[in-house]
């Protein structure tokens, strides 16, 4: 009998506890995915780029947080002008034509520009070029620096003009001599 009373008492207490709490809990899950690889997109002018000894194409896929070294190979007659990695100019960080990128943590753009090491010589233009003209030629692409030798440009010294000038001077001299000779004849007669 005491056991029965105890059981009833305990059950009553338990029911009182449950009804007095009124507390409810619900959960929500937050999820995220970090990719295992990232894409490096290349823009190359005047040369090529190698990664692990292999020339890169337009894009390569590398493991996240990979530290990659790139070899910059200019075309013949070209040198490195500028290297932009992930939006930052890192030209100063290139040593021995190699650039070691920081750990790869997002899709990145790799832009390298090579420029001609020497400007092409133009034989039809003996006079010194102005600095303005030289700077324009430095920023132009190699293909546009090829000039048609038959095209005459302002400041050019064409051989035909020289010959014509000499002929004109000679003609004038001859005219003066002949005129002077006629006058002498008149005077003597």
């Amino acid at each position: 009998m005491p056991m029965k009373k105890t059981a009833v008492l305990l059950l009553t207490v338990l029911m009182m506890c449950i009804t007095s709490l009124g507390v409810y809990a619900e959960s929500a899950t937050i999820a995220a995915q970090v990719p295992g690889t990232h894409t490096v997109t290349f823009v190359i002018e005047g040369g090529k780029v190698e990664a692990n000894g292999t020339p890169v194409d337009h894009t390569i896929e590398l493991d996240r947080q990979r530290v990659q070294t790139y070899r910059l190979i200019p075309d013949d007659g070209y040198i490195l002008d500028q290297l932009i990695y992930d939006g930052e100019d890192v030209t100063e960080q290139v040593t021995n034509n190699c650039f070691t990128a920081p750990p790869l943590i997002r899709d990145t753009e790799f832009t390298v520009i090579f420029r001609p090491s020497r400007l092409p010589q133009d034989s039809s233009k003996p006079f010194p070029q102005s600095s303005t003209e030289q700077s324009i030629r430095r920023t132009s692409t190699p293909s546009s620096q090829t000039r048609d030798a038959n095209t005459v440009h302002t400041g050019d010294f064409n051989e035909a003009v020289g010959y014509f000038t000499v002929l004109l001077v000679l003609s004038l001299c001859l005219l003066i001599v002949l005129t002077g000779h006629k006058q002498e004849k008149h005077t003597t007669s």
């Binding site: 507390v23 409810y24 619900e26 959960s27 899950t29 999820a31 995915q33 970090v34």
Partner: peptide
């Protein structure tokens, strides 16, 4: 690091 991440949060109403 690369991979799948998650956590469960609990809202308690009283």
């Amino acid at each position: 690091f690369a991979g799948s991440y998650s956590d469960t949060v609990t809202f308690t109403v009283s």
